[in-house]
Each structure stands twice: as C-alpha cells, then as structure tokens.
Amino acid sequence: MVHNTKKILIPLHGNDVAPRFDLATEVMITVRDKNIAHGEEKIVVLSQASAEKLCHLILTEEIDVVICSGVEEEYYQYLTWKKVQVIDSVIGSWESVLKHFYEGTLRAGDILFDKEG
C-alpha cells in the first residue's frame, strides 16, 4: 500500500496508458495523499510529443511516480537519476493501472487489459 503523498503522472493514449512515452500528446497527473485519493485527475495536453519536454514537465511538476509503457533507456535512466520512480511497460486503462498502483500491486511489465475486448 502507498502511504505517503505521491504525485503521479501517466502519459495517455485515449483512456489507456500511452504505448510510447516519447509520442504521448497528453498526460494525466494526480495526487495521492496517505492512501486517500484527492479525486482530482488533471489532464494536461502537450503542445507536441517530445520525450525531452515530457521529462521537463515531470521535473517542473515535481512528479514522484511515472507510470508508462514503452520508454527509451536514456529517459528511464534520466528520470530515475532525478529520483523519479518509473514503472514502465505497463499496459492497461489508466483507471485500472492507478487502482493497482494504490493497492500496491502494480509492477513494471504488468498487462492489465481486458483481453476479450
């Protein structure tokens, strides 16, 4: 279970986690304080898809956790070095991904998808 205040960012593709970090044009930012959701998910539309600009946004917004799918090693290492926790290769809708994260069961590489569609 997550016990302290965390600011979470998820790059989006529709309702799902964006398949590519560098190609996401919108992100969802939310705050979870001592396991209580504030219920305020903020969607930020980016002016253009860019891994560099997204990294900049993550740092200026003081994000603690990034949940994403495909991300290049270079940006993964950069964010980790900047003390941002990155949970990558996650597939699923942002709601289900967040739910698993709050429950403390989300792991990198998780596929949380309704496979029957």
Binding site: H13, D16, P19, S69, G70, I111, F113, K115, E116
Partner: peptide
C-alpha cells in the same frame, strides 16, 4: 494474445 497490437508493437 488479445491485446491491441499498438500496445505490443509500440
């Protein structure tokens, strides 16, 4: 299997 291809192919 069963996952939309853009999530896998990326």
């Amino acid at each position: 299997t069963g996952v939309p291809c853009y999530h896998i192919l990326r």
